[in-house]
Design a protein around this nucleic acid. Structure first.
Lengths: 214, 214
DNA sequence: GTCTATAAACAGATAGAC
DNA sequence: GTCTATCTGTTTATAGAC
């Protein structure tokens, strides 16, 4: 059972959502005009109203699509691990995958800024993002963390720790422009993402503490 | 010597900058109209062009003012510590101060979103933010981290580690709306900031590793 | 479903009185 | 320095042909 219920979009509808994710993410909701959106989607202005009822409807559809895509990356399809070591290994795998996707993935370049704008603006898309993205992903990570460390998954410490882990990752995307300047990197590509992944893996191990039997 | 050179603004000029920080931070640059800005500053639309040459000029002035204010909080006025233990203690003090200011401070509610928007949009204000805010603050933290751990301040690991620390902090502000839902907190006030501060202090100690003599 | 044309509201900038 | 009134272009939404 996935948290999103609407079917995957296609055709003009999908093209407009792609345009929305790209332009809303780069320039903000107000900064992206319906003309620019329809041009990016290679269609006409009226199609936004036809398919989504208006610009605001497109915003919501973008949030749903982003939640669907990120869930596919951040939620492992398999069952929950049963031992602490397995949970630890799963956290490592997820961390690697999240860093690669968020920090150097092409899609996330617009998706992460889109999400963070919606978080600060507090519009209608916020409920979609919370219910379909934050709650399931954060919840799963808390369960894994709890299994790996022995702390209860719903404890304040575990929940805050998982937020701090997510913060470490997303900052490398939203702050990418200052990170590359300070690191003297040309861009954050797969090679640079590996350096970030190595660092955050080290951080993860230090925060998890020594293994139970160690 | 501070990195900012322009004098602190006052009067109508200051009121417009306050309005810019508040409205640009909440709604984005494009989302804040000159009418809304001048209304918030209790002045007329023409004063934006008079004082800043236009809306874009106000954006730059806001970036400069934000850099000035955050430097005042994030850069300790005293000299660099000389021992590892002193550096560690300074990092703890700075972390507490940064969390209190960024996570529950009233000003940061609009300032942090403003900065992150500018980072992702990549406009003219980015240079101001990098030169007057990121470079000095990140540089100072790297020096302290180097002194506390013995690693070279300009090493890739230290620079990335400091970015990961900053990411942990700022996420609790930009993601505040989802954090409060997930934590079942009414708001992130001083009490909640203390819980976050305690967690991040623990993270800091684990990432710094055991003390040299310990 | 797609598109052009247009309407009605809104944007940022500015002229000119005070 | 401050303000009102206005100019010019752009915005979203929609009516109606195809």
């Amino acid at each position: 059972m996935t948290a999103t219920t609407t079917p995957a979009p296609e055709g003009t509808r999908l093209a407009l959502i792609e345009a929305g994710i790209a332009l809303f993410g780069q320039q903000g909701f107000a900064g992206a005009s319906t003309r620019a959106l329809s041009a990016h989607a290679k269609t006409n202005i009226a199609s936004i109203a036809y398919h989504f009822g208006g610009k605001e409807g497109l915003r919501l559809a973008c949030a749903e699509e982003i939640a669907r895509r990120i869930q596919g990356v951040f939620l492992t399809p398999g069952p929950m691990p049963s031992t602490a070591d397995e949970a630890r290994a799963t956290l490592h795998i997820l961390l690697d995958r999240m860093v690669a996707y968020v920090v150097s993935g092409k899609q996330a370049g617009a998706m992460v800024p889109f999400i963070l704008r919606e978080l600060t603006e507090g519009g209608n898309a916020l409920d979609v993002i919370y219910d379909h993205l934050v709650a399931p992903v954060h919840g799963r990570l808390c369960e894994l963390w709890a299994l790996a460390t022995g702390s209860p998954a719903d404890s304040e410490t575990v929940k805050l720790t998982v937020f701090s882990l997510i913060g470490q990752i997303v900052y490398f995307r939203i702050g990418a422009r200052v990170v590359v300047r300070r690191m003297d990197w040309p861009v954050i590509g797969p090679a640079e993402a590996k350096a970030i992944s190595a660092l955050l893996t080290g951080n993860l191990d230090r925060l998890l503490g020594p293994t139970r039997r160690g």
